[in-house]
Design a protein around this nucleic acid. Sequence first.
DNA 1: CAGTATCCAGCGCGATACTG
DNA 2: CAGTATCGCGCTGGATACTG
Lengths: 142, 142
Amino acid sequence: MCVDKEHKYLCAAGGILSIISKKWALLIIYKLGTRGRLRFTDFSTELDTINPQALSETLKDLVSEGLIERESFPEVPPRVEYFLTPEGQTLWELVKPLIQWAAERDYRDKDRCDKICRKKMCHSKNSPCKRELQNERKNNNL
Amino acid sequence: MCVDKEHKYLCAAGGILSIISKKWALLIIYKLGTRGRLRFTDFSTELDTINPQALSETLKDLVSEGLIERESFPEVPPRVEYFLTPEGQTLWELVKPLIQWAAERDYRDKDRCDKICRKKMCHSKNSPCKRELQNERKNNNL
DNA sequence: CAGTATCCAGCGCGATACTG
DNA sequence: CAGTATCGCGCTGGATACTG
């Protein structure tokens, strides 16, 4: 596998992709990078109603990738915290400028942000974008 | 839309995701970043049998994102070249360290590369990985 | 050569209900 | 609280054939 150096690089890129391309993975890393430790439900509220199923899966993936760590406290009610591993922090340092670059692009082209919002981040029922869209539609149908 | 600064950042991340998460987009940028100008069929051979349909769509997306540019020459047979725009080069500069980081991880953990290869990069019929996998299976069935 | 047209499969993800 | 179980849809991307 990964027969030559070139192909190895492609594999590596593929590996990053398989991590990053999960819809919520980068945002989870973003949140942990800026906020520090977070609990399961923190993500639910922070990430604009990601559903527990997708969240659970993505967290597991990131844990098994060694990018975040899970610490559970033997309390009632249970408490679990997630945080970046050193390796995750390294990734975060690389991802941060990427997000900043993206934010600047959006700033220069305001329509982009809206389009992206609609397409990628506003599927969830109660997201701010979704509500705005629903209002728009209402008004258009009048 | 993008109601507050935080949400704007999430949108930006979503924008990056929508670009990057296309299976072949990063690799196209990688190839253009390292090779310079490339033609349509160059990608087909460079990228281990990506199919023309997916390639065509991804290229269009990247063009409409302003990350790459398409130049067609009025010749017979037709010739078309793709290359990074300045904006695309900026992205490439940000993506490069990401890929290097990924390559180093894979180097430390050899199994990772194999797994990723299988999962993400070896779907196409004639990829080196695919052929190796088929051989493996044959041997196991003996 | 540089694509387009079609058809189809897999799965990522959303919604919802349930549990230790 | 921190998840798991189940179901279903839509989109991405693969294979193949065709065209200016």
